[in-house]
Design a protein around this nucleic acid. Structure first.
Lengths: 231, 231
DNA sequence: TGACATTGGTGACGAATTGTTACTAATTCG
DNA sequence: CGAATTAGTAACAATTCGTCACCAATGTCA
């Protein structure tokens, strides 16, 4: 055991500079995309995550919603904090502390303002080091939560086909899923309900539309799944 | 779609007051326990979470480690951020923003200082509202991550019996597990390896000691488990 | 000393779940 | 019309899971 400090803890708050950095994620063709904004020409990198300080009395998620509305024109369907950073890495506004927030937005909702653009997660331009860290955390958090939270449904419009849903899961998980298994598991979960509409996309059989409508789950308590460990 | 703002986003950092609030968790007899410190008599509640502001240049987890060392005399085995709060709820130091951090410490490590005490998670004394929120978040995060992360091993000494391990899982999950199933799943996961030591606790057959020694997992990629949804 | 209580540990079997194959259905294209 | 394409499902085999039953090694106590 280590030596005990002689003086007790005398806690005190400290003033610091704070920013909320938002990773807006949306499914694009064949990849998850992140919304970046063009930085002022004085900045070191051309692009950055949308960010701002929370206003006085404004919650962190409220700030994230406001920032997203400004750059996308629509509030995201879902938020999740992905971590608060106070390492020394560079931030575009030189904030000492950054709160990273992932915001999920369905495909086709909103329209980026002139100075904003979607970039596939796998091929981002250069951004400030702290923003890079935040994006990586956001991707990791979303991928890790995808089968514990209805995240996938937040990346789709209210009505969707099961193929759409499977496609989003495949995007998020980064691997192909087997159609029959996917549907059987979904069926058993009572998470969606069929609508009376069909969607025809040109070729092939029209697909039935579903909506996210989770029913009370029967208490399916299972044993420990060590096979789910991620690290 | 909503109206687009006429002015673009002009991001700027804002100065604010920051605190790191630590939820030190450790398994006690039959329950998870939280370490609380006695508050100055001027405070509104008698007890509070250990907290402080991070020093200049000190990372958030580093601050949590320092705070824990002061009150427990030992650094925790594991940290996890459980969320950053900027709601209006009251904080003992009136910080505008709190970073909540869960710190896991094995049973029997360290010794609380005179003004600190363990309380079972289920029967805490009155604490500031924001601290209450942070504790609840910490418990939820730990319970949710327990079968994705080797959290349980961080609540045990380096050598432990399988009954000990099962006990920690039962504490965290809040329900009994079946011995044979638990061991079979653990076996298949290659997370532990047996040592050449046995532990005799008085009555009953002595138990073999194991250590946490995760082997490379064969890529057991499975289908989506909708049955794991927590909300 | 020898039953018995207590805790550790495992084989085995039926039930449930999962991975896969192979099929049917409904549509467009040429 | 038939081929191509996408949607949807029945059914079978392989695997995993929940449980029961049992054996092993120790302390307790009559």
């Amino acid at each position: 055991m280590r030596d005990r400090p002689v003086v007790l803890l005398k806690p005190a708050v400290r003033r610091t500079t704070l920013a909320v950095d938002v990773v807006v994620l949306s499914p694009r063709v064949d990849a998850l995309a992140v919304l970046l904004v063009r930085a002022p020409s004085s900045a070191r990198e051309r692009w950055s995550l949308p960010w701002d300080a929370p206003q006085v009395g404004e919650g962190l998620e409220d700030a994230a919603a406001r920032i997203t509305r400004v750059v996308l024109g629509a509030a995201p369907a879902f938020f999740e904090q992905v971590g608060t950073l106070s390492d020394g890495r560079r931030h575009p506004g030189d904030a000492e502390v950054s709160v990273g927030i992932a915001a999920l937005s369905p495909a086709g909702v909103g329209q980026p303002i002139m100075d904003a653009e979607w970039f596939p997660l796998a091929s981002l331009p250069a951004i400030a080091p702290r923003h890079r860290t935040i994006v990586d955390h956001a991707a990791a958090v979303v991928r890790q939560r995808v089968d514990q939270s209805p995240l996938a449904f937040r990346l789709l419009p209210p009505a969707f086909t099961l193929s759409d849903l499977q496609g989003v899961y495949e995007l998020l998980l980064g691997r192909r899923l087997h159609k029959a298994s996917f549907r059987r598991a979904l069926q058993a979960s009572y998470l969606v309900e069929p609508m009376d509409e069909w969607h025809s996309e040109g070729r092939g059989r029209p697909a039935q539309l579903f909506r996210y409508a989770p029913k009370k789950r029967r208490g399916v308590r299972r044993g420990v799944r060590f096979d789910l460990f991620t690290d």
